[in-house]
Design a protein around this nucleic acid. Sequence first.
DNA 1: TTCGTTTTGAATCAGTCGCTTCAAAACCCG
DNA 2: CGGGTTTTGAAGCGACTGATTCAAAACGAA
Lengths: 193, 193
Amino acid sequence: MARPRQFDEDRVITAAMETFWRHGYEGTSTRDLCDSTGLGPSSLYNTFGGKRELYLRALERYYATVTAEQVARLNEPGSAKERLRAMMLHSIDSDLDDAEGRRGCFAMNAAVEVAALDPDVKSAVRRCFDRVEDELCAVVGAGQAAGEIPSGRDARALARLVQSTYYGLRVLSRVQDDRKALLATVDSTLADL
Amino acid sequence: MARPRQFDEDRVITAAMETFWRHGYEGTSTRDLCDSTGLGPSSLYNTFGGKRELYLRALERYYATVTAEQVARLNEPGSAKERLRAMMLHSIDSDLDDAEGRRGCFAMNAAVEVAALDPDVKSAVRRCFDRVEDELCAVVGAGQAAGEIPSGRDARALARLVQSTYYGLRVLSRVQDDRKALLATVDSTLADL
DNA sequence: TTCGTTTTGAATCAGTCGCTTCAAAACCCG
DNA sequence: CGGGTTTTGAAGCGACTGATTCAAAACGAA
């Protein structure tokens, strides 16, 4: 029928996600995106529509990959608290790793930078957060069923408490390099469950 | 000796802070700053040096005003838990208020958007966070002395736990409008102390 | 009033912004 | 191979970026 594309759409979105993740929405120019994806501007606009649409696609990709990994990590073998700890530990170590560029959590970055200005971004970010919350809830529920966590309190409420502390720690990790202090807070949270 | 300035430097910094706060660092242009401050570009550059320096001054101003208000709110009359609750409640209501433009916490915005790229911004933000942490620690200590909070655990550790949950809630408030759910998490945190 | 100093506004710098246009190239189907 | 369709690269759109220049204006001190 017609000329086929020379690029893999998934690869392009992944490359765009990396760029947005590292430099933010306003900090990323269309030329940056062309450079990192290897696409010319016409291909980029022809395929995705524009910078904003590509950003939304990048957030979807984040949900499908990184958020999925977080969920998977919560479902690895171990007690409920061990699994909660593993997820938080992994994120903190990732946040503090210079080799990863200290880019933090892409969904959180989008929440802070763009969510107030763009309802679609807000929805995409909430989708990530809600998915994590649901899985935290499941893990807490399992812990309660196993007698590891007291059943007196609502699993959802406990999950939200863990979730808040978790994202708070990821904020602090942007300016606070003391890994031990962050880990101590993780353990305080788990001890309270 | 020479021609005096036609503007009040404090007013200019405050106006610049509002603009940076609302639109972020990259989202604010020098012309935006000229418009909001009323200064011409030459006056602005002559006085402050450039956009980055003005941003740092804006962060200092945030510390001197908003962070100071948070600290003051922690020192109002009432029990320790009442004071902790008052601070968190005030911030959440501020975050959810459309009339305030849903701009969140300027220090947190700076932490997420700029801190990784600019050590001076990182320091300025940490100054805000550390000030809040210290005051939280004092309040927790007072609660322990009054018998309101068990003395078994380190006040500093408890303060950091509250602080993490606090900033986590402010992240969630960017995409989550359910005030009751956020407040429930505040109460869960306080109940655990 | 005159001098020396600083501030101010207007104009403008080269470079970049997000985005568009368009003709040539590349493909599949018949 | 020819016809129809899509993708591609290059060039460029007007607007805006952070920053600078410079002469005129506005003051205090002598």
